[in-house]
């Protein structure tokens, strides 16, 4: 990767949406919106609601399916010199495995991020992120189905993130990313109705950043595989925090909606920090928080 700063799944579409505004070649990687075996329409509207320091979303992972994605978006993405990480999800372990198997030989796909933790999918997907046995089965299944780099994305709403981080490593994951959105809810007090059609959703944005830093710190402390820090990054300092607590890469999420070029600005900010402190690589920062 040219930079440790990627764009997070679900916040950057499949790439073309931002290509006019952001030089995609300057991103560390593009993590595309979650792909399932078959096309999915997603949730009813309203799908998002802005709250203090954050955004709650319940989009419901609409996607064109593996074949639709490969046909509609991979030719576009192959034109760029940027790693493509496909976020994958399924309703059953078998679906995860099948999606992973199908991507194994798709030219231009560099890694799979295993979405076990989107809170907006019923029929079980949220369980994959919070039930340790289910989590192991999914990661193990995906690992066995692909030669690609496998990165499970951990849910924040577990009692001990370290257990899930270790389980991912034990199952053969090449890295882990965290956190996914934080389960949340908002009510319109005038109508007494939930502000999302799905009732609950996942909170993202600056409001979850400190929660994510703590979880990344805990997870990074117990594994030897690389950790991707995600959650509420809006500026370089936020990314530096993740690096210092042990992440070796980061992904910018919701901030791209507001400032499409956030990931590039974070990259520049990290480079300036390294310069200012006489450091030659990001690696020299990883895990250097002083306790």
């Amino acid at each position: 990767m040219k930079t440790p700063v990627m764009v997070a799944s679900g916040t950057f579409g499949y790439g073309p949406e931002y290509a006019e505004l952001v030089d995609l070649n300057k991103l560390g990687a593009i993590v595309v919106k979650g792909i399932a075996l078959h096309p999915t329409k997603g949730n009813e509207t309203p799908r998002t609601v802005e709250v203090a320091s954050g955004l709650i979303n319940a989009i419901g992972l609409p996607n064109p399916g593996v074949d639709g994605f490969v046909e509609q978006y991979m030719p576009f993405l192959r034109q760029y010199d940027v790693p493509v990480i496909v976020n994958i999800w399924g309703k059953t372990v078998e679906e995860y495995v099948e999606v992973a198997r199908r991507f194994d030989h798709v030219d231009g796909v560099h890694a799979l991020e295993v979405n076990v933790s989107c809170p907006n999918i019923k029929e079980g997907s949220a369980l994959f992120g919070t039930d340790l046995d289910m989590f192991r089965r999914v990661v193990d299944g995906v690992r066995g189905a692909t030669q690609l780099t496998v990165i499970p994305k951990l849910a924040p709403n577990v009692s001990d993130i370290k257990v899930f981080a270790r389980a991912a490593e034990d199952a053969g994951a090449d890295g882990i990313s965290l956190i996914n959105s934080v389960p949340a809810m908002a009510v319109d007090v005038k109508t007494r109705k939930p502000r999302l059609a799905n009732v609950t959703g996942g909170l993202t944005g600056p409001g979850i950043h400190s929660v994510a830093v703590r979880l990344v710190w805990e997870a990074a402390g117990v594994v030897n595989i690389p950790v991707v820090g995600i959650g509420g990054i809006t500026k370089a300092e936020d990314a530096l925090e993740f690096l210092m607590v042990g992440a070796s890469a980061v992904a910018v999420g919701t901030a791209s909606f507001t400032h499409p070029a956030t990931a590039l600005e974070v990259t520049d900010g990290i480079a300036e920090y390294l310069d200012r402190h006489g450091l030659s690589s990001v690696g020299e920062l990883v895990g250097t928080v002083l306790l």
Binding site: G10, T11, G13, T45, R47, T48, I59, P62, S256
Partner: peptide, 8 residues
């Protein structure tokens, strides 16, 4: 987002 990415 206004550009087709967030699907709101």
């Amino acid at each position: 987002c206004g550009v087709g990415a967030c699907l709101t």
